[in-house]
């Protein structure tokens, strides 16, 4: 065990992945609770596909992937909220359109430029080798911004999530706060998908929230519990992935699934007692 920790720290790419991953796990846990409660779970999934498209295009054009993907995904988040708010196209349908279109654009761009290579595979399923040190700086900075904004607006975010109409009546700009949640989610997804992969990142957002809602009675408890569950699952998932030489993203998801099932069992036992 101690040996494993020692080797873990001696590889700088592992350490980088761990630092960024823990921060992303924390961000996605915080935002995930709001998204699940607002019935926006699918936004995470949709945005990750947009991020895949943006990364493929920027790779083909030779731009730095994060700097292109972050603004594009934020724009997509903005559009998704606008579309569902206008009610012209239903929210879930809008997400399906945007996500599959960007996936398709990403795939076409890649096959025209270099063909399906290892990079694309990494974007799909994640890789702990993907982070360069400049990526780490951007990721850490973004995660800190997400966490700080979430704490600062915590009470308003609660009010808007719990009862949007009442919040609006008390003079809270609910549109602005919804947008804040969507933009923070966009940032979290772009940063997290390097490690987790476009196809797996949304589970990082949804699992911890659902898990803690199995036993949580208050909003604060659910937020705290979700953060702890998310960070522990991420660290455990990384360790398992290292120990068994399996992909990190997949191993984090399976760890989350296991904890979710345990919490479900706890709830059943509590109900029966």
């Amino acid at each position: 065990m101690i040996d494993m920790i020692r080797t873990f720290i001696s590889y700088s790419f592992l350490l980088r992945a761990l630092v960024v991953g823990v921060l992303v796990a924390l961000c996605s846990a915080l935002l995930g609770v709001c998204l699940v409660l607002k019935r926006y779970s699918m936004i995470g999934d949709g945005l990750s596909h947009v991020a895949f498209g943006a990364l493929s295009v920027s790779l083909a054009l030779g731009f730095s992937p994060l700097q292109v993907a972050i603004p594009v995904v934020m724009l997509a988040a903005f559009l998704l909220l606008r579309l569902s708010a206008n009610g012209k196209i239903k929210g879930d349908a809008a997400i399906a359109i945007i996500s599959s279109s960007s996936l398709a654009i990403g795939v076409i761009t890649t096959s025209l430029s270099k063909g399906m290579n290892l990079d694309v595979f990494h974007y799909m399923f994640g890789s702990i080798l993907a982070m360069s040190s400049s990526d780490v700086y951007i990721s850490v900075a973004l995660s800190v911004v997400v966490i700080v904004l979430f704490i600062v607006f915590y009470n308003k975010i609660f009010a808007v999530t719990f009862d949007e109409l009442f919040a609006k009546a008390t003079g809270i700009n609910t549109g602005l706060h919804n947008m804040l949640i969507a933009l923070l989610t966009a940032a979290t997804i772009v940063v997290g998908m390097r490690i987790m992969g476009a196809l797996l990142i949304s589970s990082l957002i949804i699992f911890p929230a659902l898990t803690s809602m199995r036993i949580g009675k208050s909003f604060r408890f659910v937020i705290l519990c979700s953060s702890i569950v998310s960070v522990i699952c991420f660290a455990a998932g990384m360790a398992i992935s290292y120990g068994f030489s399996i992909p990190a993203g997949a191993s984090v998801v399976v760890t989350n699934l296991a904890v979710f099932l345990v919490f479900n069992a706890l709830r059943l036992i509590k109900r029966k007692a």
């Binding site: 409660l37 009470n155 009010a159 949007e164 919040a167 008390t170 949580g216 009675k217 208050s218 909003f219």
Partner: peptide, 19 residues
């Protein structure tokens, strides 16, 4: 307008009126 399965304590709900 209000969700029934929302995890929130009574105190959290009442306090949100003060915002």
């Amino acid at each position: 307008a209000v969700q029934k399965d929302f995890p929130a304590s009574v105190m959290e709900v009442v306090l949100s009126g003060c915002l």
